[in-house]
Design a protein around this nucleic acid. Structure first.
Lengths: 211, 211, 211, 211
DNA sequence: GATGAATGAGGATTCATTCAT
DNA sequence: CATGAATGAATCCTCATTCAT
């Protein structure tokens, strides 16, 4: 039995790896397919064709179409979590730190355009399970941004604002700009620096001249 | 009865009115149903059940499900066009005029919550005809906001910014806030004044203290 | 009451005439519409649009779509009955009489192209009531042709043949030629004389040289 | 089991065969259903009920209802192509060869009564794609018959006739006789020999005594 | 593990006919 | 008589998921 376990370990390791690779292949295929046709419009057939697997195999790796989308959201969350670093107010040049955060978020959108498009494009209202996941995604983002706003206000960097509303607004601003660049026509040609600069300017300086 | 005989208009007028009323009833029912379940997830059955009409009657008033959605977009456009007034820079207190504009847009969202939710929630990618309509809606909004930005910059009211990006960002900011209030959980309790104030503050003053 | 009857007569006469005219208008419109789109593919809407009447009015003149078709069949039967004259074998030149019959039938098809097309195009299998009418039409034609064949055989003009089969075959020959001319592409340019001559030749002389 | 392991072909071969069998079962069911109710009047439900398969399965084997009909036409074409052999005029007894051709065509109609009925019954005017297929069928038949007529005339076997018209007429004659036997009431009891003899007689000898 | 044939609920749309005005 | 708004049964097709091989 120990032998069997040992062997089993060896085998399961290789098997585990192969399984992981295949899962990744499905995910990558799904990103492309969903980005092109939208999550709801794309069918499982589209995904398995792109991934080069059979119908049944898909369900060996993901419980359902929704489960695949949940995985994509989690993937997106992990990327954006990496991008949004907490700004330490005791460090010098907080504005620069914030700008670097904006840059990293923009970078993430440019580095994972399909994933970003797929996740940001999707809205609530289609599937309760999915809605919950999206709620959690936006809740997560809002909490992070709200935290930054509170932190900034406490340390005298940012003005006191209605944090929930402003956090939501900022998320919407970034989201719309990313989608206009990735999926739409209007900002398709924009580059990272331009988007980052414009988003930073609007966020921190606002529109008024004297303000 | 004399009146009834007086004009054959009498009959067609009443008929016209009844037709108009019924069409309105369908539209209202659709707004509610689509707001609750999303346009694509809601079926014609849901709409006709809510409107209390039969299957065939629906197609007497709208050519298709898509045509109904197009009508909702047009309705939304007409409301938002009424709300967004061009700010005359020669008038005193331009900031106040802009704030009033923000207020009116917020009012529109509060006055037509279902319609706003339905239209703002929908994304491109399901139906080419519908995508085009949505493109036109956002193009329209962007052009209006870009125009305001250019106008403000020329008259020394607002700072010079990357207008396409900032316009897109502002639209996204308002959109996300409205959806969070109407469809989501986070801003459900917010009132008009709060949202208007927060959106105005972010837009025109930005976040920085000194800025 | 007598007075009322008198008046009623006067009125009903005019009314009767108007009714008759309107019925004719519907029938003519139906011929054109059914010829263009086929009976089953054409809708009542198509007919009433072409006739310039309202939906309900149609049902004042015809009980149903099928009843209208039955009327067209009857109209066709009356025309073809006029065309197919019994050939008196005691008269000289029976071949010439037969040829004149063929000519008259061809003339009928050319004089009422829409009606001919509509009636000949339709096949059994869609509607029991309609099937019965078509059965009666073809039964009627077959009986006439069979009669002619028997008559000809008895009088030594035509050869003895399997009358039911040959009658059916002749009907099919004429029908296919008319449809190819009226609805199809292959014989569209053919003229009356050509069709009449070819049909006569085949029918009476057959194909063989010596025969 | 060794066999099973021997070739991976084994599985795909059996699968291929099963697929083929099922497709055949659908086709046979469709022939019966369409013969009974007509192609347009029969619904997919009728076909799948008769074939004992589910709704979705049908679409695994045929792209659409029309595609199924196209398949039936092709099937019919292949049968009739086999039946109509080109008569070599250098061979003795050309009349006998022609008669054998007629016999083979009649045999085909008797051997595939449902298919023959379905294909011959259908008329143009319902579906553009389908119309084209029917046009091609009749074009094909006409070309074959016209060729035979020209061939016969050149070799002094048949008389010179207006080939397009006579070919059309002959097709109509056979068609009507087959339908009267298969779908109608009048020739239901007729046997192969009778129909073949009568059709041959009419075609080659015509009706006139002396002729 | 991998496969892909089979499933069947669900959706948008059409159209002959009725009937209140 | 004439109208035309209202009806609702009926139809074709899609696609996420299952399961025997």
């Amino acid at each position: 039995m120990t032998l069997k376990l040992a062997t089993s370990d060896g085998r399961s390791l290789r098997a585990e790896q192969k399984r992981s690779e295949r899962r990744e292949a499905i995910v990558r295929a799904a990103e492309i397919v969903f980005a092109r046709r939208g999550f709801h419009d794309a069918s499982i057939s589209d995904v398995i064709d792109a991934a080069g697997i059979s119908r049944g195999t898909f369900y060996l790796y993901f419980e359902s179409k929704e489960a695949l989308f949940v995985h994509l959201i989690e993937r997106f969350v992990s990327f954006i979590t990496d991008a949004m670093l907490v700004v330490d107010p005791t460090q010098p040049e907080p504005a620069r730190r914030i700008f670097e955060n904006v840059e990293r978020v923009v970078d993430m959108a440019f580095d994972h355009p399909d994933l970003t498009q797929v996740v940001l494009r999707e809205n609530r209202g289609r599937n309760p399970e999915l809605d919950e996941q999206l709620d959690r995604l936006y809740e997560f983002l809002r909490v992070m941004v709200e935290g930054a706003l509170k932190n900034g206000a406490q340390n005298g960097i940012t003005r006191a604002v209605n944090e929930p509303v402003v956090a939501t607004a900022l998320i919407g601003a970034f989201k719309e700009v990313f989608l206009a660049h990735l999926a739409g026509a209007s900002l398709r040609a924009a580059d990272r620096a331009t988007l980052a600069a414009a988003l930073f300017e609007l966020s921190v300086r606002g529109l008024f001249v004297g303000a």
